[in-house]
Structure formats: structure tokens, C-alpha cells
């Protein structure tokens, strides 16, 4: 087996260098979150000052709140919608399914900036028409002798458009990870359940859902990651009043970045690292247990 041959010192050194390249900036980011001074180059001693500042900074806390809210909502909606959509796609004929799957993959393939710009154009155009309508027309009617007047609200880019954009780019990832699970599922299972008296909904709840659960979970995880990490699409669809964490960071880089941002990213990094370690340890344990069972 050629691929299992052990690596020499040079190969290992090369790997080490690449990892150094990948981690040096992140390491630096973390180190300088504990800096007493406000520079990200000159070390002035250890302090937790920036972590305290972080929790008192309303702008950053607000943007973290927006980021988490939009990511959680978009993930929840996209996961449910994507799961049903892939069950629907899977029941279709190829003639219908293939073109729809191509359209579905557009947001994944397109450059982020094109997705962002195209959604921005749509929102601005539709809102333009709506606002013109809202300015010129109002609903007037009289009821019990009193005259009521309903004015239509003006619409602008904001949290709503941000959420729509996030749902749109999340659903394809959910479908991409649920689809293969549906394909692997034994088709007779659903028929058998229904023959034994299940309604379709019961069959869905008790048979399909447990079978495709791993796909749904990984789809939701990918969607959440994509949402939290997204900058470009949010930048074009959130308008000027709403701001996600990534947008706040970008805004800061234009002037001066406060080390509070280092503190945020350190907290995020440590959380993700802890989650990954837990997941991996659990997986490794499960594998070991499975292997032990096999030898019993």
C-alpha cells in the first residue's frame, strides 16, 4: 500500500509549516486579546480589560445579538423548509427534479457578491414600487360613523431582508445534506409502515424522520455556520441600520479595530474548539465501543 507509507521528516516539516501558516494569525489574535495596551502589535502586559469592555460595548453586543438571532431563525426555517423540499424533490420525476436541483445549487455556486447584489437589487426595486404605492394611496373607510384611515408602512432594507437572504442561501445546504440520506433509505419502509396502518404523517414522523435525522442535523449545522460566518451577502441586504458582527468588524477595519474584537473572536474560537473536541471524542468513543462489540 503506497499511500500508507510513513512520511519522512521533510514531509512532516512541510505539514508543520502549513499549520503554522494557518494558525499564526489566529494565535496572534488570541494573544493580543489579553493585551493591556490598545495596540495589536505592541505587547503592554496581561489584562482582561478588553473582555470587560466587550460586554459593555452596546454596538458590538447588539451586532452579536443580531447575528445570533438571524442565524438561529434562518437555520430553523431553512432546516424545516429544506427537509420538506428534499422529500418533495425526491418524490418527483427526474425530468422535473434535475432542473430544480440546478436552480437550487445556484446560490452555492455563485460568488457571494453576485448573490448579495442581486437580492439587493430585487429588494430595492420591489420596495421602491411599494413605497410609491404607499405614499399615494391610503385605505379610508367609515365604520359606525367614524372615518378610519390606514396608511401603508414604508419598507426599507433591514432585519427582514437580512433574514430572507440568509434563509435563501441556507436551504440549498440543507437539501444537499438531506438528499443523500433520502436516497439511501429503503423505499419499502414507508410502504410497509403505511400497509401496517400508519397515516402518511405518522410514517413520516416515525420512519422517515429518524432515518434522515443525521442529514438534517448536519445540514442545520452547515447552515448555522454559513449564517454566522457570512459577511458579503449580509452586507448587501441588511441596509444601514441593521448590522451583524461581521459587518461591525468590517466597519471597524476602516478606522481602527478595537481589541474588543480580538476578545470576541477568542471567545468564539474557544467555543468552537470545545464543541469540536467534544464531538470528536464522542465519535471516537462510539467507534471504539462498536469495534469492541464486533470482537465479542
Amino acid at each position: 500500500m503506497s499511500l500508507q507509507k510513513k512520511n519522512g521528516v521533510l514531509n512532516r516539516l512541510f505539514m508543520g509549516l502549513v499549520f503554522l501558516f494557518l494558525y499564526a494569525p489566529i494565535f496572534l489574535l488570541i494573544v493580543f486579546s489579553f493585551n493591556a495596551g490598545n495596540s495589536s502589535v505592541v505587547w503592554k502586559g496581561f489584562s482582561l480589560h478588553w473582555y470587560v469592555e466587550l460586554f459593555q460595548d452596546r454596538l458590538i453586543m447588539q451586532s452579536i445579538y443580531t447575528t445570533l438571532l438571524v442565524s438561529l431563525l434562518a437555520t430553523a426555517i431553512a432546516t424545516v423548509a429544506g427537509t420538506f423540499a428534499s422529500i418533495g424533490f425526491y418524490a418527483m420525476r427526474r425530468r422535473w427534479r434535475d432542473p430544480l436541483m440546478t436552480v437550487n445549487s445556484i446560490p452555492m455556486m455563485n460568488a457571494d457578491i453576485v448573490t448579495g447584489v442581486s437580492l439587493c437589487l430585487l429588494f430595492v426595486a420591489v420596495f421602491g414600487l411599494w413605497n410609491e404605492f404607499a405614499e399615494n394611496y391610503r385605505l379610508t373607510f367609515s365604520l359606525f360613523g367614524a372615518v378610519y384611515r390606514i396608511t401603508f408602512p414604508r419598507l426599507t432594507l433591514g432585519f427582514g431582508t437580512l433574514l430572507i437572504a440568509h434563509i435563501s442561501f441556507n436551504i440549498p445546504y440543507v437539501i444537499l445534506s438531506v438528499g443523500p440520506k433520502l436516497r439511501q433509505m429503503d423505499k419499502n419502509l414507508v410502504d410497509a409502515a403505511q400497509d401496517l396502518g400508519c397515516t402518511w404523517f405518522q410514517a413520516f414522523w416515525k420512519v422517515i424522520l429518524p432515518e434522515i435525522m443525521p442529514g438534517i442535523v448536519s445540514g442545520a449545522l452547515i447552515a448555522f455556520t454559513m449564517s454566522v460566518d457570512d459577511f458579503v451577502i449580509s452586507y448587501f441586504t441588511a441596509g444601514s441600520a441593521t448590522s451583524t458582527l461581521a459587518m461591525a468588524i468590517y466597519g471597524m477595519t476602516k478606522k481602527r479595530v478595537s481589541p474588543e474584537i480580538n476578545a470576541v473572536s477568542t471567545l468564539l474560537f474557544v467555543t468552537v474548539l470545545a464543541l469540536l473536541v467534544i464531538v470528536n471524542v464522542r465519535e471516537a468513543r462510539a467507534e471504539k465501543a462498536a469495534a469492541a462489540q464486533r470482537f465479542d
Binding site: 418524490a91 436552480v103 437580492l119
Partner: peptide, 22 residues
Amino acid sequence: RSLLAVPYVVWMALFVVAPIIM
């Protein structure tokens, strides 16, 4: 069962295809 995909197909028409046409 394929009707389950209809809401998403409408969504795609509105927020994937329409923006590109724009």
C-alpha cells in the same frame, strides 16, 4: 408527496430566479 416541494419552488422563483433576472 412531491407537492411538499412547492413552497420552496415558489421561494426559489422569488429569491433566486427573480434576483438574477433583475
